[in-house]
């Protein structure tokens, strides 16, 4: 096997394992929200994103407007734009033609983090191998959750409910520990989010919209208060 393929598979395996419990939870939630198992699985296969899917699912099951769906996906997934820009500087000439169009489909927080940490350029072989196991883990996890959710004990389902948030914490905390400005931006976002959650008049705002407002407000404030230097950021 080509070395890039082997390394890609090896780097992708821990991501796939981490995705499984989270997408399992997504499958359970989707079915309990009224979707069928194949609908839940199709969402995971076609979106490959955690936060966006959970937000999208709540818009779907609430019968929300399509514009809320579009806006929530745009803002919640806006972070992928930054990662895509960064990756566009890092790929080599082997990423071309159809492969170039399919490449950005699998930009996620975790896949990006692994490929960005790699000193060598990202080749098409490496990317194809890196993403295959996480895509499989994410999709099959959803399928299993959608099929098994109904027969699992309630206590176990409740315990799994935290898996999504725990995965987010696993992304936020190491970054916040290394950069005090990121930490303060997060504290600000949490403060705004609590205001929305606990203020009766504001809690009527859809959860998708309130995340958008809180994140944009906190990031704008942080960008003004703590602008990044020339070499940092995008």
């Amino acid at each position: 096997m080509h070395q890039d393929l082997r390394r890609g598979l090896r780097d992708g395996l821990p991501i796939a394992l981490g995705y499984f419990p989270v997408s399992f939870t997504f499958g359970i939630l989707a079915v309990s929200g009224g979707l069928s198992f194949w609908q839940a699985t199709l969402i995971s296969l076609m979106n490959l994103t955690s936060a966006g899917q959970f937000a999208g699912l709540s818009v779907m099951t609430a019968g929300g407007p399509l514009v809320e769906m579009a806006l929530s996906q745009l803002i919640i997934n806006l972070r992928y734009s930054l990662m895509s820009i960064s990756l566009s500087q890092k790929v080599d000439g082997s990423v071309r033609g159809l492969a170039r169009w399919s490449f950005p489909f699998s930009v996620t927080d975790e896949i990006f983090a692994v490929s960005a940490a790699r000193p060598e350029p990202v080749t098409q072989r490496y990317w194809a191998a890196l993403r295959i196991l996480p895509i499989a883990g994410w999709t099959l996890g959803t399928l299993c959750g959608a099929l098994l959710g109904a027969v699992l004990p309630q206590r176990l389902l409740e315990a799994l409910g935290i898996a999504l948030y725990a995965m987010f914490i696993a992304i936020i905390v190491p970054a916040a520990r290394r950069d005090v400005h990121v930490c303060l931006a997060c504290v600000l976002a949490v403060a705004f989010s609590c205001v929305f959650f606990f203020t009766p008049a504001l809690s009527a705002v859809g959860s998708g919209f309130s995340v958008i407002i809180c994140a944009v407000a906190a990031s704008s404030a942080a960008a003004v208060l703590f602008p990044v230097g020339e070499e940092e950021g995008a």
């Binding site: 931006a185 949490v190 609590c194 940092e232």
Partner: peptide
């Protein structure tokens, strides 16, 4: 510089706002 800074923070503020305080009400 504003946009670069904004993009630097957006991944983490999105995830933070999604997680808190919702995480405290995810189990019943």
């Amino acid at each position: 510089r504003f946009l670069r800074s904004f993009f630097r923070y957006i991944p983490y503020t999105v995830l933070s706002a999604m997680t808190f305080p919702a995480i405290f009400f995810c189990t019943g």
